[in-house]
Design a binder for these strands. Structure first.
Length: 490
RNA sequence: CGGGGCAUAGCGCAGCCCGGCUAGCGCACCUGCUUUGGGAGCAGGGGGUCGCAGGUUCGAAUCCUGCUGCCCCGACCA
């Protein structure tokens, strides 16, 4: 049915690219590694932003904006942070162009060299902490709870639309607290916010946990994360939240006077999700017929397609369609009446299916006579005929059902592809098949590295809700107190 | 930065080995008529410095040399 689309079976990564480009979410740009997010894709991102922003504000955060450029010297102040990002920074060295003396276009004016080079932010900890020094004097200034929506640049070798691009959009929260406990609680709280968003809005089930030292954010004391399973069995980190300890406060000399009149360094967190979530959304729900969107994030939740033979029918059916649209919009639904006279119904059916619209209503002459409408749901591709007077209640209910069904399907898939493994032989076999592996680990970086080198699998997280269970490390045989989750990842 | 491949209409490709008339096909696009309950049919039409620069030749998309760009595979990563 869906022509021009690879199937997941044939070529999973081609299938992903096909959906992103053909559903009009994004395309590659003239700039290597950078994408153009197209209106339909951006509309989904805006819906994500709107809900996340509300969740951040509900938890007491305020938005602000910090510069795109960071003085190079700021980067060197936190040792492990520099080390983590140095290899992928874009650097601004000059501030002026001029006409080439030989008449060959525009060249960099070497006379306009910056005294101090500027880094295009790969993340904003350094510029933000340099700023916070001026904002924080006393415990009365704490906690400081700030978020920013921004673009960042990480010069990646290999890029893929949404999943890894040289420039991407994200939000980064940066908070300052008087105590260690409060900062840890903040990092944990924001991870719960992310998990809630992923599960309730994106219909993506996620595991919550802590990263191993190898996978920790550069400059963090502890990194928390949510991990989702894609349909090819690989893991995708969907959000991270970091407890930064006093690392940045010390590097940037951010101190406050406590109630006891003692000068102390503040405690910090940072947390972020990016346009990568768009990739997660595509890879979690979509099928071989195209994109599948959860109703809560779909820019169009219901599309109405009129079917007609002549001008007279066209007008009568579009009138009815408009009536239904208004009726549904009163319930707060996002509805589109596709009254284009330039495409045939069959074309429209396929197009909206490909674009993942959760519910399609078709109205033709027969329906007009019978007072009915054909309802098709994107997730199961099932169709039924309803009486027009029933659609008010039924459509809202159907959208809820679709939202739940998508979550349940994704959860069932993850459950079916999660395995407890207790021997190294079994581990090597299972990892080839994909999915999450729950195995014991001796807690050493050496073992983790060895497993990665041998199998390309990494520890995705040490689950929060993992039950204590004594066992032996799947690789070294040394004692272990709990299982951790291994997988190959994006 | 190492290994491989590609560059011909908006997109996808054929032609190149073995040089030769006006460079072709599918999709898309434009016009008209018939159509419209799962990607319409027919007819007509528009669109190309064959990546760039040299060379060989009577003649180059095709052969030779150099350059540039892009893609794929590896090391890095949300």
């Amino acid at each position: 049915m869906a022509k021009d689309l690879s199937t997941r079976e044939e070529n999973y990564s081609q299938w992903y690219t096909d959906i992103v480009t053909k559903a009009d979410l994004a395309e590659n740009s003239a700039v290597r590694g950078c994408m153009v997010i197209k209106p339909y894709g951006y509309a989904i991102w805006e819906r994500m932003q709107a809900e996340l922003d509300k969740m951040f504000k509900d938890t007491g955060h305020q938005n602000a904006y910090f510069p795109l450029f960071i003085p190079k010297s700021f980067f060197s102040k936190e040792a492990s942070h520099v080390e983590g990002f140095a290899k992928e920074c874009a650097v601004v060295t000059h501030y002026r162009l001029k006409n080439d003396e030989n008449g060959k276009g525009i060249v960099v004016d070497e006379a306009a060299k910056l005294e101090e080079e500027l880094i295009v932010r790969p993340t904003s900890e350094t510029i933000i902490w340099d700023t916070y020094r001026g904002w924080i004097q006393s415990y009365r200034d704490l906690p400081l709870l700030i978020n920013q929506w921004a673009n960042v640049v990480r010069w990646e070798m290999r890029t893929r639309l949404f999943l890894r691009t040289a420039e991407f959009l994200w939000q980064e929260g940066h908070t300052a607290h008087a105590t260690r406990e409060e900062a840890v609680a903040e990092a944990e709280q924001m991870l719960r916010v992310y998990a809630e968003f992923a599960e309730s809005w994106m219909a993506i089930p996620v595991l919550k946990g802590v990263k191993s030292a190898n996978e920790r954010f550069a400059g963090a004391v502890e990194t928390y994360c949510i991990e989702a399973m894609m349909q090819d069995g690989k893991a995708l980190q969907a959000g991270t939240s970091h407890f930064l300890g006093q690392n940045f406060a010390k590097a940037f000399d951010v101190q406050f006077l406590s109630k006891e009149n003692k000068l102390e360094h503040v405690w910090a967190t940072s947390w972020g999700v990016s346009t990568r979530l768009m990739g997660a959304l595509v890879m979690t729900h979509s099928d071989d017929n195209g994109l599948v969107l959860p109703p809560k994030l779909a820019p169009i939740q219901v599309v109405i397609v009129p079917i007609y033979r002549n001008e007279e029918q066209y007008r009568a059916i579009c009138d009815k369609g408009l009536e239904i649209k208004k009726q549904l919009e009163k319930l707060g639904l996002r509805v589109k009446l596709d009254d284009r006279d330039t495409q045939k119904p069959g074309f429209k059916f396929n197009e909206w299916e490909f674009k993942g619209v959760p519910v399609r209503l078709a109205i033709g002459p027969r329906d007009l006579e019978n007072g009915t409408v054909e309802v098709a749901r994107r997730d199961t591709l099932e169709k039924e005929v309803l009486h027009i007077q029933d659609i008010d209640q039924k459509i809202s209910h159907l959208l809820d059902q679709i939202q739940q069904n998508l979550f349940q399907k994704a959860l069932d898939f993850r459950t079916a592809n999660t395995f407890k493994v207790d021997s190294w032989e079994e581990f090597k076999i299972q990892i080839e098949k994909g999915g999450f592996i729950e195995a014991h680990w001796d807690g050493t970086a050496e073992t983790e590295q060895f497993i990665k080198d041998e199998t390309k699998a990494t520890i995705r997280l040490i689950p929060f809700d993992g039950e204590a269970e004594a066992g032996k490390c799947v690789f070294s045989g040394k004692p272990s107190a709990r299982r951790v989750v291994f997988a190959r990842s994006y």
